[in-house]
Design a protein around this nucleic acid. Structure first.
Lengths: 338, 338
DNA sequence: CCGTCAAGTGTTAACGTTAACTTGTATAGG
DNA sequence: CCTATACAAGTTAACGTTAACACTTGACGG
């Protein structure tokens, strides 16, 4: 079923049908009616391929996931994809999903698929710091918006969460609850967010005139097991510590485990704040106070930026979003005299 | 940059270039070399749109997510998508992702996008029982494979996990550890997997000659809070219960909470098995024994089935996968005399 | 009463491929 | 030596759409 078939059935030329469909040019009301009826009856939909061929635009935006899923909390991705997909669809775009690597193995497709002019723009969800992204991006000549990674490349936009500020708020919250000796479980330096969270921790301490003690900071690689060990060490070596800020929730859970094992209790003996607001935070005991990134919203914004760039042939914008603190029950207010 | 540009630069006709690219027909080694060099130098990639137009095939497979993400564990989706995407890419297919509904709102795109002949085949990830899928599927005339939903529709394939057997194994494991009075926290009847898990529970009891006591079974809607309440009730009303099988991990966590609050301990006073093997299962205390679905593998298989169907113009196959039990530390072996 | 313009419709060519057919040349078999 | 055939190309048309231009009709102003 093509334009011409519809044209024949409606007894008009194929151009008239095209005009009816696209709302361009003059068509008399009666003709329009007739054509629309025939289209309806045959539930005709114009060929996307033919349109893409002649217009040079596919109306498809690529979504490239640049990190290995198994290395990162699984629930990070879905809300982002969902947000992107929703906004893109609303704007008449389809979405092509690619994973750069799967289970450690490099995927074949991304570059070639993306080069074929198969997409009008590209959203890249990534996690690692800098990495090879810079180089790889340059080859592709479509508008690009990075999600969750703030790399300043001319002509490339991004949507990121201000993790530095998120961490700042978390630590500030601890300080405002009377905590002075605050441990920090740090992530892998490989991940860009890791450094930012550290920066926020340091900023908050300095802002409130507290000393930055390197021995309070432990690198635990975003890893539950390591955090568990480091927390045990930390509490043994530095018993004056009353609170821990963990750079993600899995690490906070590691701290929980250590505290339990030492026969202590949260938040009575130790206050804990995590980061990411994973699903389980509300279910564990005690429910974990943590920092929430607005993941769906990030996806939505990224989609808007890319649509904007594609349609106005302009460079994509850059956008920094603020996370917020989700208060639960893992932080205790210290008495003044304590 | 088109075939013809390459042809001009290599001083051949565009057909020769086409033949070189597709490996069809006769081309002399020297000519092939020359053409390949020119292609390389200009890193030319043929237009997917033009190919799609003339061949009637897009080399894109649609992936439609039919359920509301917020209603289901977030980490269910990524491995499935990843598995699909990987296999599809390997076979030269691109992937178009669509969400049927986002945050309760119906998405606009799916039907129209899919109808436009934009995809050669469709993978549908769903969760709800039957629902409207039957009707919606019939309109689309591309091969379809359902993922995680076993609906027998002629010409439609599926990849599912045998949740009945998964539940059976879980309950069997409890029985083999000496438990006789086993509670069951049930999911929403809305979800297809829910009924299967119940079926497995009942099968195991009956297989081992244990009575099915309705008062041991509580509907907790896959919900943490409800499970928490139901577990408290269950333990109060039926103190003889020594183990609980929860139809998913969130519910198991609810049980954990109840047990803690009653001053009891897992697995000493109560053994618990969950279902899904969510990320946090290994991190909570005690680590939760649970049933693992092979999600990436499901995605991979589904992708293979659809590629098969598309390329051989045959009806897609149907496939039932077996989950397995992940043993951790939430189940206690009861002494014979206990 | 003619030119101009708007409304409504049609014709043609182009987008970048591939299928199908055609052409030319070297080689082998009779 | 002629012809059949394998090899190595080239030419043309088609896929389904849209842009650009062309044509017809009627109305209206000068």
């Amino acid at each position: 079923m093509t334009l011409k078939d519809i044209a024949r059935l409606a007894e008009v030329s194929h151009m008239t049908v095209s005009r009816v469909i696209n709302g361009t040019g003059y068509v008399s009301p009666e003709t329009r009616e007739r054509v629309l009826r025939v289209i309806e009856e045959n539930n005709f939909v114009p060929s996307a391929s033919a349109r893409a061929l002649i217009s040079g635009r596919t109306n498809v935006i690529g979504m490239l996931v640049m990190y290995d899923l198994s290395q990162f909390p699984h629930d990070f991705l879905p809300p982002i994809l969902e947000g992107m997909s929703f906004v893109l669809n609303q704007n008449g775009y389809g979405t092509a999903l690619f994973f750069d690597q799967v289970n450690g193995k490099k995927n074949v497709a991304p570059e070639s698929m993306l080069a074929k002019g198969q997409v009008d723009g590209l959203l890249i969800v990534s996690v690692e710091r800098d990495s090879a992204i810079r180089k790889r991006i340059q080859r592709l000549n479509v508008p690009i918006v990075l999600v969750n990674q703030r790399i300043d490349i001319p002509g490339v936009g991004y949507v990121v969460t201000d993790d530095c500020n998120g961490a700042y708020c978390a630590v500030e919250h601890l300080i405002q609850n009377g905590h002075r000796n605050i441990g920090f479980l740090q992530g892998t330096p490989r991940f860009s967010t890791s450094m930012e969270r550290q920066c926020g921790y340091e900023k908050a301490l300095s802002r409130y005139g507290l000393p930055l003690r390197p021995e309070y900071c432990r690198v635990a690689n975003f890893d539950n097991e390591t955090s568990y060990e480091q927390t045990k060490l930390l509490l043994a070596q530095r018993p004056e510590i009353t609170a821990i800020f963990a750079a993600n929730d899995a690490m906070a859970l590691g701290a929980y485990r250590a505290v339990n094992e030492l026969g202590l209790s949260i938040p009575r003996d130790l206050s804990v704040i995590g980061y990411d607001n994973q699903e389980y935070c509300q279910f564990i005991q005690p429910p974990l106070t943590t920092v929430r990134k607005h993941r769906r919203s990030m996806g939505e914004h990224a989609a808007r930026l890319i649509v904007d760039a594609v349609e106005n042939r302009a460079d994509p914008q850059k956008l920094v979003m603020q996370p917020d603190l989700v208060l639960r029950q893992s932080v205790r207010r210290l008495e003044e005299g304590a």
